[in-house]
Amino acid sequence: MSQLTKRALAASLKKLLARKPLSKITIADITEDCGMNRMTFYYHFQDIYDLIDWICQEEGERAFQGRKDYDTWQEGFIALCHAVIENRAFILGVYRSVQREQVENYLGRVVYGLLLDVVEELSAPYSLPEQDRAYITNFYKYAFVGVMLDWVRDGMQQPPEEVVGRVSRMTRGQLLLAIQNLADSPRP
């Protein structure tokens, strides 16, 4: 029941963002749209930004489903771009209504999960401290999120396959090289 309630609140926010800016949407608007009371909203979320974060996490997880390893990360990233296109009104509503840093944080948490799994997989044969794995993951997260934000800002004109293909070609072998460069030594 809890997930259904969250999804209903998310659907209402998405619907409202297609009609008006985020700054004009209240919790009362969201709950009225989906036939719930305000306390139900607050049972699940602290505020509208918490709901936005939840939506981003859900959409990201759905996009990455089973595509979070070295061989499939490109497919996961493409699926995430397609999810952004499918949720264009929501994404643009959030993008235009909050500071860039908040949008970076929303996308960053989603992309970090994808990249961390890839870094963990590639670093398995090496002695690489957790803080170095996190550092590498964050480094590439900022690059990937920056590319995505530019793509959104430019109206999502390029097909996701082109955007991700270019990122893939530019980073081919670089993640493993970063791991090797920071690793103490290969594990026996």
Rank of each mutant, 00 (worst) to 15 (best):
Y112Q: 01
V110L: 04
I78G: 02
W73R: 10
A79R: 08
V84T: 13
E75K: 14
F77Y: 10
A124Q: 15
G93N: 05
V98P: 06
S123K: 03
Y106Q: 02
Q131R: 05
S123Y: 07
I78P: 06
I78S: 01
L114V: 00
R100W: 08
I91Q: 02
S97E: 09
Q131L: 12
R96D: 12
L107N: 14
A89D: 15
N87S: 07
L114N: 03
E75Q: 14
E101H: 15
R100F: 09
G93F: 07
L92Y: 15
P129V: 09
F77M: 12
H82L: 13
E104P: 06
C81G: 15
R96Q: 15
E101W: 11
D71K: 12
G113C: 05
G93M: 06
Y112P: 01
Q102R: 13
V110C: 04
T72N: 09
C81F: 12
R100I: 00
P125A: 11
L122C: 03
G108I: 08
L122N: 05
D71S: 10
L107P: 00
A89N: 13
L115A: 09
L80C: 08
R96P: 04
L128C: 06
F77A: 14
D117F: 02
E75L: 12
S97Q: 08
Y112D: 03
F90C: 01
A124P: 03
R100T: 12
W73A: 03
E75Y: 07
L114A: 02
P125G: 10
G108Q: 09
L128M: 07
P129Q: 11
L128H: 01
E130L: 13
V98N: 07
C81M: 13
F90R: 05
R96M: 08
C81D: 11
Y95L: 00
Y112S: 02
D71A: 09
E101Q: 15
E121P: 05
G108R: 10
I78V: 15
C81R: 10
P129R: 13
Y126I: 01
L92A: 04
V118M: 04
Q131I: 14
E104M: 00
L116T: 07
G76W: 00
Q74W: 09
A89G: 05
Y95C: 01
T72K: 04
S97F: 05
I85R: 13
G108C: 11
V118H: 05
G113D: 02
V119H: 07
S97Y: 04
V110F: 05
Q102H: 13
N87D: 04
V103T: 10
V103W: 02
V118T: 00
Y126D: 00
G108N: 11
Y106V: 06
F77R: 06
L114F: 02
Y112I: 00
L114K: 03
E86A: 15
V110P: 01
N87A: 02
L114T: 03
V94L: 05
G108M: 12
S127C: 15
Q131G: 01
Q74C: 10
